[in-house]
Simulated assay, not measured.
Amino acid sequence: MKLFKYGLFIAMGMLLSCRFNPSNENKIKKGYNAELATKLKADQYGMSKYVMAFLKRGPVRNQDSITAANLQKSHLENIERLAEEGKLVLAGPFFDDGEIRGIYIFDVETIEEAQTLTQTDPTIKAGRLVMELHPWYGSAALKQINELHKTLQKQNVSEQ
């Protein structure tokens, strides 16, 4: 983890050194799409602020199988609703059986906004999952992933 944080600090330092380098002013990269960048609210690096959520095992995991299945179905329906509203740009489970069950990436400015959205999840309300929220900086192109996903999806995941 320390190595990751160290690497993150180096990357941020490099990013900031480029940002304040006067020789970089007015350089526009070939292929830059100003209209799309504006639409996606991208900064000059094509990036945007998000809030990343780690979905972790909650303290209440003793539901019977029918209740757990119903909670999971409602959880998936909530994910779809948040994606349709443009508040959730990415969600998915991890394949291992670890403590962290999945991730969300919210297209919101603050942890508080993301916290409010997490409270709409039935699995959070039931205590089956808890969320750990972190501000995150990533490609503004993520905001288009839900529309692209719809073109690849044969079946809706909540209809299983």
Results as ranks from 00 to 15, higher is better:
residue 143 K to Q: 07
residue 90 L to W: 02
residue 87 K to S: 02
residue 3 L to T: 09
residue 62 N to Y: 08
residue 54 F to K: 06
residue 140 A to H: 01
residue 120 T to A: 03
residue 139 S to A: 08
residue 98 G to S: 10
residue 119 Q to N: 12
residue 93 P to L: 00
residue 38 T to V: 10
residue 138 G to S: 09
residue 141 A to H: 04
residue 26 N to G: 12
residue 157 V to N: 05
residue 24 N to C: 07
residue 53 A to E: 13
residue 19 R to E: 14
residue 94 F to R: 07
residue 104 Y to P: 03
residue 159 E to C: 00
residue 37 A to R: 09
residue 32 Y to W: 15
residue 38 T to M: 12
residue 31 G to D: 13
residue 28 I to M: 14
residue 43 D to K: 01
residue 71 L to W: 04
residue 75 H to N: 06
residue 113 E to L: 03
residue 150 K to L: 10
residue 5 K to N: 09
residue 114 A to C: 10
residue 59 P to Q: 12
residue 118 T to F: 08
residue 90 L to T: 03
residue 27 K to W: 08
residue 155 Q to R: 10
residue 21 N to Y: 15
residue 133 L to R: 05
residue 84 E to S: 09
residue 158 S to K: 08
residue 65 S to A: 15
residue 97 D to N: 14
residue 42 A to N: 05
residue 44 Q to L: 13
residue 104 Y to H: 11
residue 37 A to T: 07
residue 35 E to R: 12
residue 92 G to N: 05
residue 152 L to N: 03
residue 34 A to D: 11
residue 158 S to G: 05
residue 157 V to C: 01
residue 36 L to H: 03
residue 115 Q to T: 13
residue 120 T to R: 15
residue 124 I to M: 13
residue 29 K to W: 12
residue 107 D to W: 03
residue 153 Q to L: 14
residue 91 A to K: 00
residue 71 L to R: 04
residue 133 L to I: 07
residue 100 I to A: 07
residue 52 M to C: 14
residue 126 A to C: 09
residue 91 A to T: 00
residue 19 R to K: 14
residue 76 L to R: 13
residue 139 S to L: 06
residue 33 N to G: 06
residue 41 K to S: 15
residue 107 D to F: 01
residue 3 L to Q: 11
residue 138 G to W: 00
residue 20 F to R: 06
residue 37 A to E: 15
residue 75 H to M: 05
residue 59 P to D: 15
residue 86 G to R: 03
residue 131 M to V: 12
residue 115 Q to Y: 08
residue 154 K to D: 15
residue 153 Q to S: 11
residue 84 E to P: 00
residue 84 E to I: 08
residue 76 L to C: 04
residue 103 I to A: 03
residue 118 T to Q: 07
residue 112 E to M: 09
residue 73 K to F: 03
residue 27 K to Y: 14
residue 6 Y to N: 09
residue 150 K to E: 05
